[in-house]
Design a protein around this nucleic acid. Structure first.
Lengths: 274, 274
DNA sequence: TTAATAGTGTCTCTCAGACAATATGCG
DNA sequence: CGCATATTGTCTGAGAGACACTATTAA
C-alpha cells in the first residue's frame, strides 16, 4: 500500500489510507511549490527531527453513559469507585485513552477506547450496542488530580441483553440506576448524564435510536414502552400505532411470524432495520 | 467562599463553586462512611501526595469552523499554515489548549480556548459571535507530529461583522472560502468541515441559529438568504414569509421602524431575540 | 361473557408546499 | 404605467392528538 501522494510514504496510516507525512497533498504538480518533491522531503525531514514539545499536556478519558430500558424504566449503568478521588462514590464507567508513546505509535482512537471500555464494563460484543460520541467536557478542575479532558459517549443496550451484562474483569461493583433515582455522582458526571438525557430525548423523535434499546424482535407496545421510558411521558397507543404503521409501509420495519402473549389481545412481532 | 461540604476546601474552583477535593460530596452524615470527616481528610491527603503519572499524554487542540454569509454565499475562514507540517497549506484556525501546569493550575477551559482562538483570528469581541462545540476528533495519526485530540467548535459571524475581521496578530494569511470551492486542507480538516456543515444544515431547521448569521436588524429576504446559503437550496418566498410571520406572532422577532430599499417593493426591518 | 390489551377509523388542527393575488417602491 | 420584489391569501396533503370503535386472547 502506498499513499496517493507521488512519493514514498513515511508512515502508513490504515485509518486514512494515506501517508502520514503529507496525506496525499504533495502531488507532482510542477507549477506549485507545495506540489514539489522538495517540499515533501522538507516536511519529512522536519518530522524526523521534530522535538517532542515540553509543554504540559492534559489527560484524556472516555466516559460512558450506558442506557437500557428495563421494566419500562430508563436506566444507566454506574460503577462504584474503588480508589481516590471520590472513593466509594458512584461514577460513570470510563478510563484513559491509550495514546501509545504518542509519537511513532499513537495508540487507539477515541471510538475504539469507548468500545473497549464498553466491553470491559458489559462484556457485550462490539456490534451489539449503539455507541455515539456525546460531548467533550474540559473545565479546569473537573478532576482534582490533574487536568483531564473527558470525551463522553453514550451507548444503548437492548433490553434483552441487559441481564447478560456481567461485572467487569476488575470486579468493580456496578449497578443499573433508574434515571429519576440517581445517587450523588463523582466528578461532573451528573452533568454529563444531563447532556446525554437531553440528547436521546431529542434524538429519539427524528432518528431511529429506539431500535438500539429493544430486542431484535419486538412488539408495538414494547417499542412504545421505550419511547415512554426515554421521554418520561405517555404516548396514546392508537396514535403511536399509526406512526409505527407508516414505518412498516416504508419498509423500515418488517413483520415476522409469531405473536407475543400478554394479559389481553396478543401482539404481532416485528423486526427493525438491519 | 467555602465549598458546600462541611469541611475546609483544599482548592477553590470558581467554575463549580465547590472545593476541588470533594465537590460538596462529603457532607456531615453520620450514617454513611462517605460522609465522614475521615474520608474527606483521607482523600485530601491522597491528593497531596498524588504522583504525577508517567503515562504518555496526547496534545489537545481546539479547531474552529468559522462561518459567515456573504453575498448569499456560505463561507468559511481558513488560514494558511506558516510552519510544518502542511506548510503553506490552508487549514482551520485553532491551537493548543492552555492547561497551565496541569496540576495546581489547570489552565483554561475548552470553551475559553475556543473563544480565545476566535478572537485572535477575527478580532471580534467575545459576545458578538455564536460559538458551540461540534465534535471531537481523535484518530491516531491525524497529526503526523504527535497524538493530538482536536475539539472542534463552530462559530457564526454576522454578515455585517464579516468585513471587520482583520488578520490575526501573527499576520497569518487568512481568507474566506465559499463552501463549494474549498481548497485541499491540512490534517483531517475537510472532514471537520463536513461535520460542521451537516450540523448547521440540520440545526437551522429547528434552532434559532440563523440569527447568528444576520445583522442585528434584518429584513425577511435577508433572513431567507441565510437559510438558502446554509441549506444550499431555494425557499419559496411566500411560504418562508409565513413561517417568519409565526415567529413574529410568537414574539421571537419584533418589527423596528424603517424600510430597506431594493429593486422592488421595500422590505420591512425586524430585530431578532435578545 | 367479561376483562384487558392490540389494533383501526375518524375528526380536527397545525403546518408545509404550490401557487394565485395584491402591495409598494422604482424608473 | 410597467417592472421587480415584498407581502398576503388560498388550496391541498401529510401528520399529530383526541377519541370512538373493533379484534383477539385468557379466565
Amino acid at each position: 500500500m502506498t499513499c496517493t501522494c507521488d512519493w514514498n510514504f513515511r508512515r502508513w496510516n490504515p485509518c486514512t489510507g494515506l501517508c502520514e507525512t503529507c496525506r496525499g497533498y504533495y502531488k507532482k504538480d510542477p507549477s506549485g511549490k507545495l506540489g514539489s518533491e522538495a517540499a515533501h522531503l522538507d516536511e519529512a525531514s522536519f518530522l524526523e527531527s521534530y522535538q517532542k514539545e515540553a509543554y504540559p499536556k492534559p489527560s484524556v478519558t472516555v466516559d460512558l453513559v450506558i442506557f437500557t430500558v428495563h421494566n419500562t424504566l430508563l436506566k444507566i449503568l454506574l460503577v462504584k469507585r474503588k480508589g481516590h478521588p471520590f472513593q466509594g462514590c458512584w461514577a460513570l464507567p470510563g478510563g484513559f485513552v491509550d495514546v501509545g508513546d504518542a509519537y511513532k505509535n499513537q495508540g487507539e482512537s477515541l471510538e475504539d477506547a469507548a468500545h473497549r471500555e464498553l466491553f470491559e464494563e458489559t462484556s457485550l460484543p462490539r456490534g451489539s450496542c449503539f455507541l455515539e460520541q456525546l460531548y467533550t467536557f474540559g473545565i479546569p478542575g473537573r478532576d482534582p488530580r490533574t487536568r483531564v479532558v473527558g470525551v463522553a459517549y453514550y451507548a444503548l443496550v437492548p433490553s434483552d441483553l441487559m441481564s447478560q451484562v456481567k461485572a467487569g474483569d476488575d470486579a468493580a461493583e456496578t449497578h443499573w440506576f433508574e434515571v429519576s433515582g440517581l445517587p450523588t455522582l463523582a466528578f461532573d458526571h451528573s452533568q454529563i448524564i444531563d447532556v446525554a438525557l437531553t440528547r436521546i430525548r431529542g434524538k429519539i423523535d427524528y432518528a431511529p435510536i429506539a431500535f438500539g434499546l429493544v430486542p431484535k424482535e419486538f412488539t408495538v407496545p414494547e417499542f412504545r414502552a421505550v419511547y415512554e421510558a426515554v421521554k418520561g411521558d405517555k404516548y396514546a397507543p392508537a396514535n403511536f400505532h399509526r406512526r409505527f404503521r407508516r414505518m412498516l409501509q416504508d419498509g423500515v420495519i418488517v413483520e415476522v411470524p409469531g405473536k407475543r402473549l400478554t394479559s389481553g389481545r396478543p401482539a404481532k412481532v416485528y423486526r427493525g432495520p438491519a
